[in-house]
Amino acid sequence: MFKSPTWQRRLEGFRRGWYKFSRNPVSVVGLFFVLLVSFLAAFAPYIAPYPEHAGRFVNFREASQPPSLKHPFGTDVFGRDILSRIFFGFRYSLMMGVVVLSLVVPPGVILGLIAGYYRGTWIETLIMRITDIFLAVPPLILALAVCSVLTPSVFNAMMAISLMWWPWYTRLVYGLASSLKHEFFVQAAEVTGASKFHILFREILPNCVSSIFTKMSLDMGWVILIGSALSFVGLGAQPPTPDLGTMVADGAKYLPDQWWIAVFPALAIMITVLGFNLLGDGFRDLFALEEI
């Protein structure tokens, strides 16, 4: 029937998708966390009680105050409101995740497609052996090494994480592409004389998208966690940047008495990472069901 317009079919598809997704309540919780964190990050300057505390601000008179009505999460040793800094901290965490993924996914995926399609040739050997070299080094160690050579900053931390992250996408897409290349629709396209570009990006890539998407949402959490780890050891964001990892590192010195300085930022990291992971699980279920 050609009567029903495209958008109606899309809406129907979306409804079905949401039904499948929402059948797992844990995924919905994940989605909620992600939306919450994104909202707080986006509107931090308007909803944070003390937005100026995220910048070059100190007030030693109010240092190390326990949680109260005035400061719901307490203040740190510099007298800055921890709640406000967490809201701003979400910005850096999300930025870290988004920037890193948008840097690593395109090259990782393209290399994977090429290597998978040209399986058995020197192109595959070259790409995959380089990938193996990167995969052989534990990710955090590599990032630490890169960061300690460069001057510590958020930018360099993102570069370092990106450098170690792309091989995972290459590996993933390589596996998918090398099996997809034997499918009939790919062979059909080859027989009809379609260009390599067409085969790679119009035939094979669309069939990898669901897996890439799932991995991205799972990775979002990991990237944030590694970014926090780098900040924790002092190789990431520099003060007074309100980075969650740095906040935990600073607060850890005052445990257990001034517990709020470290605990709330740590919880904030946990919620962000957990949210993206649960969401990723939800996506995986969603796509897995569709394939059946």
């Binding site: 070059r56 601000f57 100190v58 030693f60 040793v77 510099f78 003060p239 007074p240 600073d250």
Partner: peptide, 9 residues
């Protein structure tokens, strides 16, 4: 670090 951040402010 407190001196440093005070100086910065």
């Amino acid at each position: 670090e407190k001196v440093a951040l005070l100086f910065m402010a």
